[in-house]
């Protein structure tokens, strides 16, 4: 366990440099406060926040690793596990829930045979539930990556998944 945390060899050096350069811009009081933006950036670059990366960030920002890990695990935006090529999020905000979003979520999980927040076997999808994305007018709402689908019916879930599966296959 500990070895894994200390080992940084698996990381692409270019990506690490990119992250370090981002961290450079913060100093003084801003440095301590920059944790959340830095984690954002790290997740953007690496896709997720594995433990050794969190520790790397902790050292760079002179924060205890436990504090970094405490922040990462507090916010639902951050993921410690790798995510699929596509992130399909079903809005479970109230407006969407009232319009049957829970069924959409079950359906999506069923089709992809996966669990919430866990990557599918083929690595294509991570299915998540999210809180309101502010498009309640279109409830129930499903997003795949940045694309928003409104007034989604259970049937359409099949199409949506199929569509993105294809896109990433070619």
């Amino acid at each position: 366990m500990k070895k894994a945390v200390l080992d940084m060899s698996q990381f692409d050096q270019n990506k690490l440099n990119e992250l370090d350069a981002f961290i450079e811009q913060y100093e003084g009081e801003n440095k301590k406060e920059s944790l959340i933006p830095v984690l954002y950036q790290a997740q953007k670059i690496f896709g997720y926040l594995p433990h050794n990366l969190q520790r790397h960030i902790a050292l760079k920002l002179a924060l205890p690793s436990a504090h970094v890990n405490g922040v990462v695990t507090f916010y639902s935006y951050f993921s410690e596990k790798p995510v699929g090529k596509n992130t399909l999020s079903v809005c479970m905000g109230t407006a969407c829930f009232v319009k049957g979003a829970d069924k959409l979520l079950d359906k999506a999980l069923g089709i992809t045979q996966s669990k919430r927040n866990e990557i599918t076997e083929d690595g294509q999808f991570t299915i998540k539930d999210v809180r309101c994305i502010g498009a309640c007018g279109l409830a129930p709402v499903v997003t795949v990556n940045d694309k928003v689908y409104g007034k989604v019916s259970e049937k359409e879930i099949d199409d949506i998944i199929a569509k993105h599966q294809e896109e990433t296959h070619d």
Partner: peptide, 25 residues
């Protein structure tokens, strides 16, 4: 501009402030 990271409680003003300081909200 400061971005949150997915926590409803961060709408509560003291939590929001801690979040902006880079801490758990």
């Amino acid at each position: 501009v400061k971005l949150g990271a997915g926590a409803f409680v961060c709408g509560e003003e003291t939590a929001l402030i801690h979040s902006m300081e880079g801490k758990r909200g």
